[in-house]
Nucleic acid binder design. Sequence first.
DNA 1: CTGAAAGCGCTTACAG
DNA 2: CTGAAAGCGCTTACAG
Lengths: 337, 337
Amino acid sequence: MEKSRKAAGPVSLATIAAATGVSISTVSRIVNGQTHRASPETVTRIQQAVESLGYKPNQIGRALKQGRSRVVAMLTANLNNPVMAMIATATEAALRDIGHVMTLCDTHDREDLQDEYLQAMRSQSVGGYILVTNIKSPGLADFVARGEPVVFACRPNPYAADPDAPGAFVGIDNEAAGAAAADRLWARGCRSPAVIMPLEGSVVTLEREAGFCRRMTELGIPPDRLARVKAPGLSHLDVGYAAAGTLFAGRPGPDGILGVSDQIAYGVYRFAMEQGIRIPDDCPVISIDGSDLNGWIAPWLDSIHVPYAEFGHHIVGQLQAIWRGETPEAAILPFHD
Amino acid sequence: MEKSRKAAGPVSLATIAAATGVSISTVSRIVNGQTHRASPETVTRIQQAVESLGYKPNQIGRALKQGRSRVVAMLTANLNNPVMAMIATATEAALRDIGHVMTLCDTHDREDLQDEYLQAMRSQSVGGYILVTNIKSPGLADFVARGEPVVFACRPNPYAADPDAPGAFVGIDNEAAGAAAADRLWARGCRSPAVIMPLEGSVVTLEREAGFCRRMTELGIPPDRLARVKAPGLSHLDVGYAAAGTLFAGRPGPDGILGVSDQIAYGVYRFAMEQGIRIPDDCPVISIDGSDLNGWIAPWLDSIHVPYAEFGHHIVGQLQAIWRGETPEAAILPFHD
DNA sequence: CTGAAAGCGCTTACAG
DNA sequence: CTGAAAGCGCTTACAG
């Protein structure tokens, strides 16, 4: 005599309690794995009822009681950027593995939207925050000060008490990546290098450029043969395109270019195509990010690979550490060149 | 005498009630815009308190009472696909505009994950579901049968009662897009066309292929000069690559190829590059999707543009209609060729 | 080993 | 025009 009538109305703890003749408290404990606090018979009886009635805990009830849900908010500067999309994908999967879900908030690099989202997420009692942004905002300052569970990715906490100990963070050593890019270009015979970065760049782009210039200088490139070009634009595609225009307007163009992101390199490529400049023959272009797509449609691009797909685990690991009350150290992942 | 002491502990309705000397009920009504049900003085007094104390409604409390939250779940087949990422971005923005937030669930085209997520989202009492997937699963069948608020995007409801009236849906006429692709290839002189699609394709890819073949036949291409190639793989990149291998292994290669998605075209490109086949000179390649990226790094690709960026509004509009108790009609958006 | 009770923050008939 | 009260589903000290 199978009792497998499915969901006639929502099944709550009370439903199970009524069906098994025990109290709600007991059901709650067992459902939450506290099986040692009840007799074995009760445990199996309840587990059977849970199974046959298809009980699933209502997360809202739980969240209200505990003041925190199993939702984690990810705030990203700009989802159109494939890098952000990759991090989001990886993080979503890692969260799922620990039974959490992710809400995605695109701040479009706007301070007001960032604060609006932080506020909104707090009203949702989310259990944690992942910030792939380093825009400063009053709300963020507040969050950091209050010690909310937040992990920064790519870009460190702009309000870190000690800049050398950024706290929960997942990223790479951008300065070293920039230097590696310099070595690579040098090895290809480049002696009049150029580096392109956004006018309103984040620390990430600044560090990559700094590493590149530092290394090029060490290699003996004089400052006047090292072009550093910035261009405005939210989209790095536009940045690369505009900067390439500036670069090639000068008499002797560069013999090698670093775009500090893949997207910048794409922008350079478009300009070069339009002008009949052949890449890499006339001028090699390299970048930092190493999107998988490059191998498919941008074979001309030599890009230092950042393991974004790995970010997910590390981010979630740090979040869990915070939940346990620990203070995680920054995870600086190796890039591959 | 400004009273702007900020948040010493969470500010709830009770806090406001205590501070203003009215009941929680009254505060709740006013906060929810029922200002006509209270005296003007009370209204302003409470609004001031809300402002100065920085009260933000706790959405968890609200959701528990109402049985539904202001969160909308988007289930997507595969976030690595830029098309999905675009739809997610657009939808997130549209939801924000109406004060909702979005959780993102990547089902990886797996039936079990889809059901797991549907279940999880229900435990979260989400207010709506957006499905960019048409994998069949028992859980989905259940959802549709129960009349849950779900909007399908790109791929129609696989459990629609009447296939010609798919209900809440946002997409394009894929058959027509396939036909348009045929016209375009024909105009470029293609007389030995090929079409590439995934082995385990969705209705979307099937319809695009069907439209293409129908139109090519109308144009007088005999069946034996119309190559239809399928290749396995979750990633369309792999599909395109493998299928191109098959196509060019045959003696006379095609003189024009339709990849039913941008990614398939990218895969073809890689194979062609490796084999020294020049695109488009030796063989034009076109596709359907029209990612913005094409203009930057895939100038060789002629792609029919699907207005994914517009999907967001339409999806949210349909969701709102459902919430109002209406039965929205499918929105078939125009593609641009 | 088990249960009654309080309470998380909100909304909403209902009564006045 | 306003308030007391019930209740959404859960957890968790506390008492037995």
